[in-house]
């Protein structure tokens, strides 16, 4: 584990570390399974895997309280699992079955859970940013002290509506944490080729929005920065930007051959910066867990994921009558 700045003995409990390990592993194993089901033709269309970026959502969810909201783009499976949505319902939505979160009508990119305050799952790059600010506006209007995590990527950071939103969020002091998940590639275009500023969070300065860059491969660093951002918003000081530097191991979607970067580049990140390996080492070196303990967690996660895959295969396709439901809310 080279090039990581975290202290070897972080101020974090064994239980907390184990939870991060478990939560990140769940996302990774789930996504690997989703990739496999895609390969078998059980998942169709577009499918964007979160593998490599797990520390971002797990670190930020560790700072969320009940009633806080989250909204993201189409690379959304990790966010759903991290906020406690049922892996069965997520996987069944991927296979387009009635047991899915959207009854099979949304798919990979469009899933929601009112219960868990997860507001999607949005397929239009950048569109979820004003939507997230709107959720925050509703909370501010009600004066309930809640915060909205609005996730988007380095690619979306070049959309005009993001800056329209920065302006209004700053003007109205909306309680929204803008989380830029900078995985360095907007589909096949590297940040260098698409973005005029090396640190995207600095774009907030023009609007008076404070922000910082965070090592997104280190769940503890993400959590620490997230706690600071959330406290800022909850206090009523307005929005905050976290640019979380992360990396996706897989292609943009399942059908991306990823020729815009070298195999060595990906392998180097896996070998040196992997977020799960990091916590694994902290657990072992801090003697918080044995190899056997971790194997048991691995097994437990594997079972959860296999169960979700079984559920997603066995759940029926939506009834044909579903074609005509949910177009309108009945008055």
């Amino acid at each position: 584990m080279a090039a990581r700045k975290t202290t070897k003995k972080p101020n974090v409990s064994a239980d907390e570390l184990k939870k991060y390990y478990r939560d990140m592993l769940l996302v990774r194993r789930f996504e690997e399974k989703a990739g496999q089901l895609y390969g078998m033709g059980l998942i169709g269309g577009f499918c964007h895997l979160y593998i490599g970026q797990e520390a971002v959502v797990v670190g930020l969810e560790a700072t969320a309280e009940d009633g806080d909201k989250r909204i993201t783009t189409y690379r959304d499976h990790g966010h759903m699992l991290a906020c406690g949505m049922d892996p069965d319902g997520v996987m069944a939505e991927l296979t387009g079955r009635e047991g899915g979160y959207s009854k099979g009508k949304g798919g990979s990119m469009h899933m929601f859970s009112r219960e868990k305050d997860f507001y999607g799952g949005h397929g239009i790059v950048g569109a979820n940013v004003p939507l997230g600010a709107g959720l925050a506006l509703a909370d501010q209007y009600k004066g309930n002290g809640r915060v909205t995590f609005t996730y988007f990527g380095d690619g979306a950071a070049n959309q005009g509506q993001v800056y329209e939103t920065f302006n209004m969020a700053a003007l109205w002091k909306l309680p929204v944490v803008f989380v830029i998940e900078n995985n360095q590639y907007a589909m096949g275009t590297s940040q260098k080729r698409s973005t005029s500023t090396p640190d995207i969070y600095t774009r907030g300065e023009a609007f008076g929005i404070p922000g910082e860059a965070v090592d997104g491969m280190d769940v503890l660093a993400v959590k620490e920065a997230g706690a600071k951002a959330v406290a800022h918003c909850r206090k009523g000081d307005g929005p905050y930007i976290l640019e979380v530097k992360t990396y996706r191991y897989r292609g943009h979607s399942m059908s991306d051959p990823a020729k815009y970067r070298t195999r060595e580049e990906v392998q180097k990140m896996r070998d040196e910066k992997d977020c799960i390996e990091h916590v694994r080492e902290l657990l072992l070196e801090g003697k918080h867990a044995t190899e056997e303990d971790l194997k048991a967690i691995d097994k437990e996660i594997k079972d959860v994921v296999n169960k979700s895959a079984d559920f997603a295969k066995e759940s029926a396709e939506p009834d044909v009558s579903e074609l005509w439901t949910d177009i309108y809310v009945e008055a």
Binding site: P130, A133, G134, L135, A136, L137, A138, E164, T165
Partner: peptide
Amino acid sequence: GFAGIGVGAAWG
């Protein structure tokens, strides 16, 4: 921007 904020506020 404000159309999107309006939609988010409605969901909220």
